[in-house]
């Protein structure tokens, strides 16, 4: 049922990167909550696995002096949800962590795995997109920094070089008046994938005008996306209810949802309109904005 050709457990980051250089067909194994599912479904067979369990460089959550928050790739969703650092910088990531799977899966699954698996439904992705998070990757050849918005290349595909490991994710320092919100829409309240996920982040000026608007969507396209038309519309405004409706409509312009047996295009479009509007409103209000 689970066909593994080799399981390598490096003791140091150096060993891990050396092994990847030598065996670029390796599948890094973090929590295994995606990899094992794919193996069971035979989408992965005779796979060469490298377990990351012994690598401390990939763990931990830190707030640097410059206000940048670093989240180690091996941070589990349980750790993410429990982190005060994360909650202060971006409470929506805590929401996303608790919306993912169930407690058992949250205990195993890691944020790095969630991102590198490349699924458009990844619960961590919309929040990281909306925050303009930066991924720090390393190979034997050196370090590379990639904005997460440029990392995804297609359904289940990301631009991780097979010789690279994701070390950590950086969240830029927060502006003085900022707020965010993640809304996951799924049939079930737990153990489910998003039909649409929507994250919004917002920075406002003292007058309440939006100085920075970010709306990111999961499952609205083959990869997570930013709704740039809606963001441009909101930037500089003191939004009213009508503006939020318009932002919802504009969010749809960035999206290309599909009909599948899980949900129709028509319904996903309605969810995009509604969630974009609601998420941004919540983000704006949590930044101190008054409608």
């Amino acid at each position: 049922m689970y066909s593994v050709s080799e399981l390598y457990i490096p003791q140091t980051l150096g060993e891990a990167l050396a092994y990847l250089s030598e065996h670029p067909d390796t599948r890094p194994l973090a929590g295994g909550t995606d990899v094992l599912v794919q193996m069971r479904a035979k989408r992965l067979e005779d796979v060469r696995l490298m377990s990351l369990e012994k690598l401390p460089e990939l763990t931990g959550i830190r707030c640097r002096e410059d206000g940048v928050v670093e989240i180690g790739a091996l941070t589990t969703f349980t750790q993410l949800a429990a982190s005060e650092t994360v909650a202060q910088r971006a409470p929506m990531l805590r929401t996303a962590a608790l919306a993912m799977g169930g407690p058992q899966i949250q205990n195993r699954a890691t944020i790095g795995g969630n991102v590198c698996n490349g699924a458009t439904s990844a619960d961590s992705a919309p929040g990281l997109f909306a925050l303009d998070a930066v991924l720090v990757l390393q190979s034997a050849a050196g370090e590379r920094r990639v904005p997460i918005t440029e990392f995804y290349s297609g359904p289940g595909r990301v631009k991780r070089d097979p010789k690279e490991l994701l070390l950590h994710i950086e969240l830029p320092a927060a502006a003085p008046r900022h707020g965010d919100c993640y809304l996951k829409f799924s049939t079930r309240k737990a153990m489910d994938l998003a039909l649409i996920g929507c994250a919004a982040a917002c920075e406002i000026g003292e007058d309440g005008a939006v100085s920075k608007a970010a709306i990111a969507l999961g499952v609205a396209a083959p990869t997570p996306i930013r709704a740039s038309e809606a963001e441009a519309f909101l930037t500089g405004r003191k939004p009213g209810l009508e503006d939020l409706e318009e932002a919802g409509r504009l969010a749809l312009q960035s999206a290309s949802p599909r009909s599948s047996w899980r949900a129709s295009k028509e319904y996903r479009e309605q969810l995009i309109r509604t969630l974009a509007k609601r998420a941004f409103r919540a983000a704006y209000e949590s930044a101190g904005g008054v409608l």
Partner: peptide, 24 residues
């Protein structure tokens, strides 16, 4: 849910055959 093109069951896992969780 059954695929009208093939007659195959689309949702043969407990992810996609949705029985309620306690949270629901």
């Amino acid at each position: 849910l059954i695929d009208p093109k093939t007659g195959r069951v689309h949702n043969d896992t407990l992810l996609d055959y949705k029985i309620p969780t306690f949270a629901d």
